[in-house]
């Protein structure tokens, strides 16, 4: 039985990253609660990180750059998640809901 060596080609990783990005974008548009949007945003960041790591493994002359960039993306994403979640809790405290369509006081 023969099987292609999937894990050794650049395009496999790029297609997986595009799939994660597409699913994340779909979730970001379709979700109505703020936490659901945050989860979809994390998926988009994961897709971007996979892209960086794939290019780093197959195309970069200096194979440390992509790893360091991915580590920085992780740090920024952790900070973003902490801030966004505390904002969501503050919104919940004032509005008693985290539905994005009910938090519309500034809507004209």
């Amino acid at each position: 039985m023969q099987i292609p060596a999937f894990g050794d080609t650049l395009t496999t990783y790029l297609v997986i990253a595009a799939l994660l990005f597409g699913i994340g974008f779909y979730g970001l548009v379709q979700r109505r609660t703020l936490i659901g949007m945050l989860i979809a945003g994390e998926l988009i960041l994961a897709g971007a990180s996979i892209n960086f790591m794939a290019f780093n493994r197959f195309l970069a002359p200096d194979p440390t750059v992509g790893q360091i960039f991915t580590l920085f993306i992780m740090g920024i994403a952790a900070a973003e998640a902490a801030i966004a979640l505390s904002i969501i809790i503050a919104v919940y405290r004032n509005y008693r809901t985290i539905d994005a369509e009910d938090v519309a006081e500034l809507k004209g």
Partner: peptide
């Protein structure tokens, strides 16, 4: 929208 993004990128 998500599918168009996925299709274009891949």
């Amino acid at each position: 929208l998500g599918f168009i993004l996925f299709w274009g990128l891949s």
